[in-house]
Design a binder for these strands. Structure first.
Length: 573
RNA sequence: CGGGGUGUGGCGCAGUCUGGUAGCGCGCAUGCUUUGGGAGCAUGAUGUCGGAGGUUCAAAUCCUCUCACCCCGACCA
């Protein structure tokens, strides 16, 4: 491809709207242009990258036995009402009415549609297992779109759905997809870390996320992993081994009301009472689908609202406001405690079980209790892990390793759905024994556009993008330094034509620009291999090969330039 | 939705406080020179200053409303 025949509008300056390096580089390199918040044009270079990722995904899905189909973007509300997600997903969904006033939405995922599809067709256990997938644009009305393609309102996704007769079958299908995912991302040129994820609004019995680890702000997700075993989980999901309850053996002391004027926060209370925050219990008052719930965790811990929400099977969960707290506890914010709370469900973190003689709010402004103990001073039924994991804690699986954390971009996810959707929508089959059973499902996503940007976030330097070879828009980029030198132009085009004949995807910068401009743009758009034809080299009948990734510059006789370029291109990745 | 911020040629920005006939850099067009890391000179084109209403002799600038976008948070199938 000649540069002048393509459409590659590079920018000299960073666009004001972009925050993330990958977003800036994709804008500056002429890969994407914004249409409106979270919605982008994909320009020719980007289109090529997306097609390459898509091809890799398609090949690996097909190899794994999945069948490609296309489902509609437009969904009727009825299907979503049937699964119960019309209310759960709520505002995330792009919704509107048609001319008849019927509710419709744009699909953000296709569990409902595909379950409805197979319910008429997969009727016998003999037809299983099946796996159907599509690669298609998706819509999600994100509260706050940001970071370019990382969190868009419209994006391209591969979504696959497996259908099995039982949990064993699901496990097999699931593992097949997990294997395929590792192959996909490996072929795209980067490592991913598979971590345990939250099932969220998907529901179901288990989930994993595939994260590209990045050392920049581009890592939206935080993960925790063990430094000894293979435990890894998202921050929403991560747990740790609770080994240290060194207060266990303390004899019980008498509960006492103490005056703690203006000590509202954990920091203020611990400073005032001169005690470690581990001795405190935080009581957080939530409104859960309108009902008050008090969540208790140790003073030095952070609450994990996802865990709490999942445990309570809640749709909406929000911290109570000051007025509500006053009404329910009789005290200002900062003095809530479990003792004497009436008609409020207590959800207690597991770590609290072994604690003795701790400090809580007294439900009286400016007072706390010390030496509180359960079940003497209060009782509860709900005891569950509702705290955030922290670096430095022990691994919950091997109990030996220490938890570390990283930031990453989620490029894929897998869910064991079980029978949630098949039951709701009535997708049943007849088993060997003649009994009707719900289909056991899994769902599997890969963000195509997000993967492209994650690659840029992962592979770049101060001069621009450094594409992994398998997803680069072109393989080799040819530059001649002086367009008024006919010899240079002819030599460059000879190389160009020869490489094209060898089946290489070549971009030649045939613009009437000075060398500096071409070099800068070449660095920016990030094609793996560059061939430079210039006056310097032509004097002694050579040209240069530059490897984008290493910066290595190799002088090669013109007669051998093509075979050498092919060889080096083959070797780099 | 809450908090903060920005809208001025294609892009990046100044001008707004203190009202007085819209500017800079890049890019674009033409010509000449130049030609290995974002060239120089000359000439030129491109703006309803996000939109609506108001105040005023006069509004990019002040007031009211509104829209869009960006950042932080909640959300994220």
């Amino acid at each position: 491809m000649r540069w002048t025949n393509s459409y590659i509008p590079t920018l000299r300056e960073d666009p004001a709207e972009a925050e993330l390096i990958s977003h800036k580089l994709l804008m500056r390199g002429g890969y994407i242009r914004k249409v409106t918040a979270g919605v982008y044009n994909y320009l020719p270079l980007m289109q090529r990258v997306l097609l390459k990722i898509t091809r890799i995904v398609r090949e690996e899905m097909d190899k794994a036995g999945a069948l490609e189909i296309t489902m509609p973007v437009l969904h009727p509300a009825e299907l979503w009402q049937a699964s119960g997600r019309w209310d759960v997903v709520g505002k995330e969904q792009m919704r509107f009415k048609d001319r008849h006033g019927r509710d419709l939405c744009l699909g953000g995922t296709h569990e409902e549609v595909i379950t409805d599809l197979v319910k008429g067709e997969l009727k016998s256990y003999r037809q299983f297992p099946k796996n159907l997938y599509q690669i298609q644009v998706k819509f999600r009305d994100e509260i706050r779109p940001r970071f370019g393609l990382i969190r868009g309102r419209e994006f391209i996704m591969k979504d696959a759905y497996s259908f099995d007769v039982d949990e064993d079958g699901l496990d097999k299908s699931y593992n097949k997809m997990v294997d395929a995912y590792f192959k996909v991302f490996d072929r795209c040129g980067f490592n991913v870390r598979k971590v345990e994820g939250d099932t969220g609004a998907m529901g179901g019995t288990g989930a994993h996320e595939f994260m590209v680890i990045v050392d920049t702000q581009g890592g939206e997700g935080v993960i925790y992993y063990c430094d000894k075993c293979d435990y890894a989980a998202t921050d929403e999901r991560a747990e740790f081994y609770e080994s240290s309850n060194d207060t266990k053996i303390e004899p019980l002391k008498e509960k006492e009301l103490v005056h703690t004027p203006n000590a509202k926060t954990i920091a203020e209370v611990t400073a005032f009472l001169n005690t470690p925050s581990k001795k405190l219990i935080k009581t957080l008052l939530y409104l859960v689908d309108g009902e008050p719930v008090a969540a208790l965790i140790r003073g030095d811990r952070m609450i994990n609202e996802i865990k709490l929400k999942n445990y309570l099977k809640a749709n909406e969960l929000e911290l109570a406001d000051a007025d509500t707290i006053m009404r329910l506890t009789g005290a200002e914010v900062g003095f809530t405690g479990p003792c004497g709370l009436k008609n409020i469900r207590l959800v207690v973190d597991t770590e609290i079980y072994g604690m003795r003689n701790f400090i809580t709010g007294a439900n009286k402004t400016n007072y706390h209790f010390i030496n509180v103990n359960h079940p003497r001073d209060f009782t509860f039924e709900d005891i569950i892990d509702i705290k955030m994991a922290e670096e430095g804690e022990r691994c919950p699986r091997c109990k030996q390793g220490i938890l570390k954390s990283d930031r990453g971009i989620e490029v894929g996810n897998t869910f064991k759905l079980g029978t949630k959707y098949s039951q709701a929508i009535g997708a049943k089959f007849i088993d060997k024994d003649g009994k009707e059973k719900p289909i056991v499902m899994g769902s599997y996503g890969i963000g195509i556009t997000r993967t492209a940007q994650a690659a840029v976030e992962r592979f770049h330097d101060k001069n621009g993008i450094i594409w992994p070879k398998p997803i680069a828009p072109y393989g080799i980029h040819i530059i001649y330094t002086n367009s008024s030198d006919k010899n240079q132009v002819e030599t460059a085009f000879d190389i160009y034509n020869e490489l094209k004949e060898k089946g290489i995807e070549v971009l030649i910068d045939d613009r009437d620009e000075r060398a500096g401009v071409k070099f800068k743009d070449a660095d920016l758009i990030g094609i793996p291999l560059r061939i430079v034809v210039g006056e310097r080299g032509l004097k002694d009948k050579t040209a240069e090969i530059k490897i984008r990734k290493s910066g290595e510059n190799i002088k090669i006789p013109l007669a051998e330039i093509v075979p050498n370029a092919l060889k080096i291109y083959e070797e780099i990745c």
